[in-house]
């Protein structure tokens, strides 16, 4: 008995070690069950506030680039307005109808406060959360293209799973065709992703634009993702893979928009269906 006690006393640090490792690993593996773990991430309000302060400094430094980007955006928009006005004049459409076609979704603008790039599972923290109407599974875009999907929300911050995450899978298509595939990121470069699953009979060219296809209920169709710079065979040789240059510059990501009401109509019909099923029982 005495020996047993001695054993426990001599090796007590081993027990502490094993206990702490178990705590760490449990938190590591339970990370995927989202909402629960929100306090142990950058969506936690203390950490979020710290990062907001840091990002207000670094966003000031980036102002010049942001300005240039805005000017370029403005220029494109002005041109688009001219083209659209011209079309409107020609078509003689009711202007209300036109507005609805162009802007069917509500978006919430948010600021990136923390952004990782070089892990295998990168995450972005933005400064809007549940209180602003953001919920998990909403699509996030920037002025240049798709950014990612909201993964976790707290009251005032959200965590976005960007394209640069090995778990991220987004349905996409080649613009102007019906060929679709799945977009995934390969660890390494922050501006390159791979779209796979295109059929062998598809005619695919370098330089073509790849956009979202609206199959999932996260992104509306037609949001640009990137352009093709290489067409290659998939590892099993059954389909084509496209290597894409992404339009979104994740290194300088500051302003993003969350699409909040795209999932709504579908969810309502689904919920109604579920309700009627329970009534039948």
């Amino acid at each position: 008995m005495q020996n047993l006690f001695d054993f426990f006393i001599n090796y007590k640090h081993w027990f502490v070690f094993i206990m702490l490792e178990i705590v760490s690993l449990v938190s590591l593996f339970s990370y995927n069950g989202y909402q629960k773990s929100v306090y142990f991430t950058t969506a936690n309000s203390v950490v979020g506030t710290v990062y907001s302060a840091i990002s207000s400094v670094s966003s000031y430094i980036d102002l010049k680039d942001v300005n240039n980007q805005l000017e370029a955006d403005n220029e494109t928009l002005r041109q688009q307005v001219q083209v659209l006005q011209q079309q409107l004049l020609e078509a003689g459409l009711d202007s209300m109808e036109m507005m609805e076609a162009v802007q069917p979704y509500t978006i919430i603008n948010a600021l990136v406060v923390n952004n990782s790039l070089h892990r295998s599972n990168n995450l972005i923290t933005i400064n809007k959360g549940r209180a602003d109407g953001i919920a998990p599974e909403m699509g996030v875009v920037s002025s240049s293209g798709v950014v990612g999907i909201v993964y976790m929300v707290s009251d005032h911050y959200s965590i976005v799973m960007p394209l640069l995450n090995e778990h991220s899978k987004i349905s996409c298509r080649v613009k102007g065709s019906e060929y679709f595939g799945t977009l995934q990121w390969e660890r390494g470069k922050t501006d390159v992703a791979v779209a796979s699953g295109f059929p062998r009979h598809a005619k695919l060219k370098v330089g073509e634009v790849v956009e979202t296809n609206g199959f999932s209920d996260i992104f509306p169709e037609g949001i640009p993702i990137g352009y093709v710079f290489k067409v290659q065979n998939s590892p099993d040789g059954m389909s084509y893979q496209l290597r894409l240059q992404l339009y979104t510059d994740f290194k300088r990501l500051r302003n993003v928009s969350v699409i909040t009401d795209y999932t709504q109509p579908e969810r309502i019909t689904l919920e109604q269906k579920a309700d009627s099923l329970t009534l039948d029982d």
Partner: peptide, 17 residues
Amino acid sequence: FDVFSNTAGMASASCTL
């Protein structure tokens, strides 16, 4: 460190080791 870098458990496991 984990809380600030969204790496739940990774750094705590390695620092404990």
